[in-house]
């Protein structure tokens, strides 16, 4: 396998893609948003339970490729107990990571999400990796409507 393919499909990514965490609707959710990628028809829904400004629980359901599922799964692990502002800052970091690569980024702040660094070599897959995050942001903004990666 070529090395950039290995970087994309790291063990952690494959594992999260196969067995995503928090693959459920959050009980008592008070925020939700759909993410839709019109290129491939992939669709997922992110649900949140917010306590004031803090994400107390987060889950996602829907269908997608290994990259979008892994990114969504890792996201749910990373943003729990974060404030809205911190979650949005994390999205900015992830977005930079998949768009521009890891150079100059605070990898410590990214934690496990660093495994998404391989996406950068695959421009056609950036939208897969950011789909759940767009939905999360829409849910945080309290938007009810579907967001699209376009």
């Amino acid at each position: 396998m070529s090395s950039d393919l290995q970087d994309l499909y790291q063990e952690v990514v494959l594992e999260h893609g196969k067995r995503p965490r928090n693959f459920r609707e959050v009980e008592g959710a008070n925020r939700r948003a759909d993410g839709y990628n019109p290129l491939c028809g992939d669709q997922l829904t992110v649900t949140l339970r917010m306590d004031g400004d803090v994400i107390k629980d987060v889950g996602f359901v829907g269908q997608g490729c290994a990259i979008s599922r892994a990114s969504a799964s890792l996201m749910t692990g990373a943003v729990k107990e974060l404030s809205r502002a911190d979650a949005e800052r994390l999205f900015e970091l992830v977005h930079k990571l998949v768009m521009e690569g890891p150079e100059g980024l605070d990898m410590e702040a990214l934690g496990k999400l660093a495994v998404l660094s391989g996406v950068n070599a695959f421009p056609a897959r950036v939208k897969c990796a950011s789909l759940a995050w767009h939905a999360l942001r829409a849910a945080l903004e309290g938007k009810e409507s579907s967001v699209s990666t376009e």
């Binding site: 070529s2 393919l5 994309l8 491939c40 992939d42 997608g64 490729c65 290994a66 990259i67 897959r125």
Partner: peptide, 14 residues
């Protein structure tokens, strides 16, 4: 089986 079309597409492209 168990592999999304996009993942197939990326690997084939390589």
């Amino acid at each position: 089986e168990d592999v999304h079309a996009h993942d197939v597409g990326t690997i084939l492209d390589r």
